[in-house]
């Protein structure tokens, strides 16, 4: 019974979902007035992502192997390093945004510098243990998140008010566009799929479209809940999911703030661990390179936090989008074409 270092399509689907939901967790809503444009924005972005995923899915379903190697053979290392650099920045951004959330909501618990160091160290450990461990742990964290989500929704103090779900108006166009592009730029699951597809034991289509369906269902449900129950609170609290657990009608527990943070922190370690694993993948020894990339990500996070490098600014949005287009769509697309042209190599 040899060890294969492979993950199943279901595990990859959950890993992609957890990294996406991490982004939703640390998403700070500015001027939140209605959830309808956000829900529509998410739906449209997901539809576009489904089309954008075709090259990667096609490549792994028909051909398999590393798309970078398919394109550049021995010089593929440079392209792989581009993936590493991209995900080091994404990891740094995730850590920075999570630290911002920690320091704004739990300012007395831990200092930002300590939080960044500890998060990166824990993520480096997770990354160094390989993709199998990340995939298996992802399943557990997903169920943990699902249980918390359901429980928070059940004991929430706010009541359903369908009047909160108002129809789209002409004034919602800007909000829709903002959220639509924000969602598209956050589709770094496509480059993730390009790198981790190699570790996949079949079922690339199942992983990709399963992820999109799961993402759509869960985040739309979240947005709906936040909108119909407590859209007023979101503007006060800032973080939509956080608002869901802020007011509980339970005698046992007053607020879910800290419980939420606990689950988010576990998810953050896992998601950043997955990014660092991707960073270290081109190198033979992940145990050495995961901490190196963790240090690089920590530097980005420090820069973001202490020197005003904004990870939710326009330039970062552009950086993320270029990464998604180039590394998540263009590379597998070109690899597909090359594989077809060079004789239709079979998997």
């Amino acid at each position: 019974m040899p060890k294969t270092e492979k993950i199943s399509a279901g595990q990859l689907m959950l890993l992609l979902f957890l990294s996406r939901i991490m982004h939703t967790m640390i998403f700070r809503a500015r001027g939140f007035s209605s959830g309808t444009p956000l829900m529509l924005g998410l739906f449209c972005a997901t539809a576009l992502e489904a089309v954008a995923a075709i090259p990667a899915v096609l490549y792994y379903s028909k051909f398999g192997g590393d798309p970078s190697a398919e394109l550049f053979k021995s010089r593929a290392i440079w392209l792989r390093l581009l993936y590493s650099a991209y995900f080091a920045v994404i990891a740094g951004g995730t850590v920075a945004l999570f630290t911002r959330f920690l320091s704004s909501e739990f300012s007395k618990t831990v200092s930002p510098a300590i939080a960044i160091i500890l998060l990166c160290a824990a993520a480096a450990y997770c990354a160094s243990r390989g993709i199998e461990g990340l995939g298996r742990a992802g399943t557990v964290v997903f169920w943990l998140f699902a249980a918390l989500f359901v429980f928070m929704a059940l004991v929430n103090k706010g009541g359903f008010d369908w009047l909160n779900l108002r129809p789209l108006t002409a004034g919602d166009g800007e909000k829709f566009a903002e959220y639509f592009f924000e969602n598209l730029s956050s589709a770094w699951w496509l480059p993730m799929l390009c790198v981790l597809g190699e570790s996949l034991n079949g079922g690339a289509a199942k992983a990709a479209y399963g992820y999109l369906a799961l993402k759509l269902a869960v985040i739309e449900a979240l947005l709906l809940l936040v909108t119909v129950i407590l859209w007023k609170y979101v503007n006060v609290i800032g973080y939509p999911i956080f608002a869901l657990g802020a007011y509980a009608k339970s005698d046992f527990i007053q607020r879910f703030d800290a419980i939420n943070m606990l689950v988010w922190a576990i998810n953050c370690v896992l998601a950043v661990g997955a990014y660092l694993h991707i960073c270290a993948k081109p190198f033979k020894s992940p145990k050495i390179f995961s901490p190196i990339f963790a240090a690089i990500s920590a530097i980005f996070a420090f820069a973001a936090y202490f020197f005003g490098l904004e990870f939710d600014s326009a330039w970062f949005l552009a950086f993320k989008s270029i990464g998604v287009a180039a590394l998540g769509i263009a590379v597998p697309g070109a690899a597909c074409i090359k594989a077809y042209v060079s004789g239709g190599r079979k998997k």
Binding site: L118, V141, L262
Partner: peptide
């Protein structure tokens, strides 16, 4: 809870 979360993540992995 942040510390407990980090320990839980590492133990889980």
């Amino acid at each position: 809870f942040f510390g407990i979360a980090l320990l839980s993540a590492v133990t889980l992995i």
